[in-house]
Simulated assay, not measured.
Amino acid sequence: MGDQEVKLFGLWASPFSKRVETALKIKGIKYEYFEEDLSNKSSELLKYNPVHKKLPVLLHNGKPVCESLVILEYIDETWKSERSLLPEDPYARAMARFWAKFIDDKCIAAMWSIRRSSERPEKGIEELTEHLKTLENELKGKKFFGGDEIGLVDITANLIALWLGVLLELKGIELLTKEKFPRLCEWIDYYLDHQIIKETLPDRENYREYLSNVLKG
Rank of each mutant, 00 (worst) to 15 (best):
F98A: 13
E35N: 02
D148F: 08
E136L: 05
K216P: 07
R204D: 09
F34V: 09
I114N: 05
P182L: 00
R93C: 12
H131D: 05
I103K: 12
A13S: 08
C185Y: 09
I197C: 10
I71N: 01
A110L: 12
R97F: 09
D203C: 04
E5V: 11
L168P: 12
N206D: 15
S117K: 14
V153F: 12
W187D: 02
A100G: 15
W12T: 02
W79Y: 05
C66H: 03
K106S: 14
V20S: 00
F34L: 02
L192K: 15
K80T: 07
S39K: 10
V166S: 09
G28I: 02
K216W: 04
L184N: 02
A96N: 13
G172R: 05
E126T: 11
W99K: 12
R116S: 10
L72V: 07
Q195Y: 09
R19S: 00
F181D: 03
E36N: 03
Q4S: 10
D105V: 12
K140E: 11
L152R: 11
I108N: 11
F145T: 14
S68G: 08
L46F: 00
K30L: 04
K47Y: 10
I155F: 10
F16Y: 11
I155R: 11
L159E: 11
A96V: 13
D104T: 09
E186Q: 15
L159F: 15
M1L: 07
G124N: 06
F144L: 01
K30P: 02
G147H: 07
Y48M: 03
L55Y: 00
W99E: 12
I29C: 00
K142V: 07
L59Q: 08
S39T: 11
Y31P: 04
E67Y: 08
I197H: 09
K216G: 06
S68Q: 08
L24D: 04
I125Q: 11
C107T: 14
E149K: 12
D154L: 13
E174S: 10
K140H: 07
E21V: 10
P64E: 04
E130S: 14
K80D: 04
F145G: 14
E205F: 03
G146Y: 02
A23F: 02
T177K: 00
T177R: 03
D203E: 08
L58P: 07
L85I: 07
R115I: 04
A161H: 14
E138K: 03
K171G: 03
V6Y: 01
K106Y: 13
D89Q: 10
P15W: 01
D3R: 04
E82P: 07
W112D: 14
H131V: 00
E209V: 05
R204L: 10
L45D: 05
E5Y: 05
W163T: 13
E36I: 05
N61A: 12
L8H: 00
T177S: 01
I188S: 13
E136F: 05
K54H: 03
K101H: 15
H131K: 09
V6C: 01
Y191L: 14
S118V: 13
Y207T: 00
K133I: 07
L46V: 01
K80I: 08
K30A: 02
R93H: 15
L86D: 06
H52C: 03
C66D: 02
V20K: 00
S212Y: 00
L184H: 04
Y33D: 03
L85P: 09
G151Y: 12
L38S: 00
K27Y: 03
D148W: 09
K106P: 15
R97E: 08
